[in-house]
Design a protein around this nucleic acid. Sequence first.
DNA 1: AGTAAGTGGGTGCAAAATCAACTAAATATG
DNA 2: CATATTTAGTTGATTTTGCACCCACTTACT
Lengths: 175, 175
Amino acid sequence: MVLARLILGLLCLAPMTGYELKKHFDSSINHFWNADKAQIYRTLAQLVDKGYATVTTVAQSNYPDRQEHHITDAGRQALVGWLSDGAAQGTERDPFMGQVFFAAELPREDIDQLLSERRVKTQAVLDDYLSQREGIDMRAAADRRSFLMAATLDHAIRQQAAELEWLDAVMEHLP
Amino acid sequence: MVLARLILGLLCLAPMTGYELKKHFDSSINHFWNADKAQIYRTLAQLVDKGYATVTTVAQSNYPDRQEHHITDAGRQALVGWLSDGAAQGTERDPFMGQVFFAAELPREDIDQLLSERRVKTQAVLDDYLSQREGIDMRAAADRRSFLMAATLDHAIRQQAAELEWLDAVMEHLP
DNA sequence: AGTAAGTGGGTGCAAAATCAACTAAATATG
DNA sequence: CATATTTAGTTGATTTTGCACCCACTTACT
């Protein structure tokens, strides 16, 4: 149900097609959520028949018709309701930590490899986030909306950086 | 399918019942994964009919019979296979970041409340992790297995600590 | 001219995860 | 004495997610 709220949030910024929503998920939302195309279209349909959004078909000259989804007042209310609702702090799930937890079953060199591979990937993710942040840095402090959006990216950056430090510590002290 | 591997990992440490597995998930695994009771029992059944585990019914005097699950060689192989497999770095999902991302829809005081409530919860989670770590600290450096298990807890601690810092920064600079 | 990539929208299916209840006996707590 | 909690496991229904396809048309690349 988080996905439904996130979509409402995006529709709150501007009316959009499922296709555009997917692009937003892949570009600006990817540091804290990801969503499958099919899931997006299905959730959109649900939002419409719950009355949280409406659809308008907009014809285009060259490209396919846009099924433009607009948030309704009920949708806006649902969004605000979710936003102020203390969200149960669901346990973060990290498959990689599962691997580390049981990695003692592996020979030493495989453990080292597991960790250093992860380090490379984490660094790559961090670099990606850092380059994303470059495009917004200046104007971020300006209005509250941009500030908060940028803040979530900063969070992701801090998390990745903390993981790098942790990886280095583990690799150094592993008996 | 991460759950299946995690269960295999635990069965690799000792034969166990579904009930005991659930307790392990709630106590020592909770900082990076959580699992529903029903899901554990169903996954156990799958493991058995894939040949990754076997069941032995052990009668007890006062309590219900134990369905003790033992890992097989095939199971151990499957576990090791997963452990050394570079696991696709699935995007971490964090509903709270979704709330922050769209929090500008809320009045200022509600945003402050959202953040400070989160701060309290994060601090509580951190304290829980810190107290968990106290029980293992000394012997952790000893063998590799304990070290790695403790390391995942350290990771969670670092993540929570980083989040606290981030929350403070956001609360301080929010326009 | 042919092939890829982009725009836009879907369907079908299976696995994974969640919620809620239900059984049943023992032991601990008030 | 009554009520919770612990031990142990199970069932059903529903949701969420992921993967793999499919359509049709347009623009860009080579």
